[in-house]
Structure formats: structure tokens, C-alpha cells
Write a protein that binds this DNA or RNA. Structure first.
Lengths: 113, 113
DNA sequence: ATGAACCATAACCAATGGGTTATGGGATAG
DNA sequence: CTATCCCATAACCCATTGGTTATGGTTCAT
């Protein structure tokens, strides 16, 4: 097709992150890790509503997106939510939230900015 | 499988949003709309690097995610970025960012919170 | 040494998704 | 009226993905 004149992306990290967060099960797992702290795959399986292999794969994607870290201890693997993981999309939203704010002066009660 | 004991999600809006933002082309289009304001499909096609039907479909998904609005005028359809669209995930990140901040006191220079 | 527990990977399936070209319909220009 | 432009939808292709069950490798307990 036509040339991609606009190349405003350049951020593969955001791709990874948004894709990782776009699945409900994955968000559920991540939220649980954030709230309850480090958990084994076993514990997460009991809580996530899907099979253990699926939990492992979800954790793999979260890890590739730098949203969790893994620590192996004996036969168990403990996963922990990684605070800095959200940074790229926080930054992305800061940039475009700011542009939005500039353009539309009436934000109609959009808080959290 | 086991029962989904943890039901911390309940937010289909975040699903829609994260999924919409997880594609680079879609973010490119959205960023362009944010920066340049209302644009026709024609203009977006010239700039996005993909075919016109694909632009239409991407815009459809952005619209379903409430990230853009459409205004038809004659034979052209003008799309506009919708400021409030990001609100649900801003809120989501505020909640889990806050929990994260509580749990890990050392944020290691994560700004934008 | 055996067996059980925990985890990861493989093999497979149905569904979704990004991409294309082709088509059709409404609005505008000549 | 006809041709053209703009957009959306359809039909199709291939890659990815969420899910499953089956398997294999470690580690722990007995």
C-alpha cells in the first residue's frame, strides 16, 4: 500500500504491554499478584479458573511484557508483580492524555490525570 | 476446571480498550487523530500504511472501544479522538499503580504517578 | 528407590485478528 | 445521467491466541 508516512509508534514495549493486559484472565492473575504478593503457579491455578498449563502460559506472557518476575525455589516457581512494568504505557498515556487535555479544554470530569 | 474464585475483573471496558490499543497501526491512527484533530478515512488511509478497508476496520474497533467518534458529512466520514475514552484504563492503572506503590516502597524512579 | 507434587512444554482445536482484493452504495462533479 | 470519489462490507488467507489434555523433568517426601 501507500508508504507509512506517519511513524509515531516505535514502541514495541507498548505492544507487548497492551497485548498482555488485553486478556481478562491475565489481568485477573496480575491483580491477584498485586494485591496478595508473590504466589506460586499452584496457588494461581486454584484461583484463576483455568488449567495449570494455561496459567503457566499466561505468566509467560506477563513475564515477556515485564509485568512479573519469576523466582524458582525447589519445585515451585513464585511469580511477583513488577512495579516498573506499567511504566511505558503510563508514559504513553501521559503523553496522549496531555495532548488530549490541550486540545479538548472541556474534559468533562475525567479525573486521574 | 476449578471454579474461578477470584472475580476481580468485571470490567469489559478495559478488555475493549486494551485490545484496541494493543495494535500498533491502531495506536498510530489514534495518535494522529489526537495530534491533528478530526480526520477523514481518506486522510487516515494516506497516512497509516494500510489499505482503506483496513483503516475502516481499525476505526470500527477504536469506535467500539469508545476511543473515537464518527461524524458523517456527505460522502466522507470524519473521525475524532474521544478524550474520555481512556478513562477506564486510567482508573484501572490508578488503582493498581496505587496498590503497587503501597506494596513496593522503592519505585526506582517510576515517574508519572 | 518410589511415588507424588509442581511446573513447563507439546500437540491439538476452534476462534479471533490483521491483512489483502473485490464489491456495492451513497454523495458529488461534469 | 454518468462517471467518480469516499466509505463500508464481504470473501478470503494466514498467523496468532486462548483453551484443552497429555507428557516429561525436577524436586520433595516416604
Amino acid at each position: 500500500m501507500t508508504e507509512p508516512i506517519l511513524r509515531g509508534d516505535r514502541s514495541a514495549a507498548c505492544d507487548e504491554l497492551f497485548k498482555a493486559l488485553s486478556d481478562g484472565t491475565r489481568r485477573t492473575i496480575l491483580e491477584y499478584l498485586v494485591r496478595e504478593g508473590e504466589q506460586s503457579v499452584h496457588a494461581l491455578t486454584a484461583v484463576s479458573g483455568v488449567s495449570q498449563p494455561m496459567v503457566s502460559r499466561h505468566l509467560g506472557k506477563l513475564k515477556r511484557a515485564s509485568l512479573v518476575t519469576a523466582r524458582r525455589s525447589g519445585r515451585e516457581t513464585y511469580y511477583t508483580a513488577r512495579a516498573k512494568g506499567l511504566a511505558p504505557i503510563v508514559r504513553w498515556m501521559a503523553v496522549y492524555g496531555a495532548l488530549w487535555s490541550q486540545r479538548f479544554t472541556a474534559l468533562e470530569g475525567l479525573d486521574a490525570y
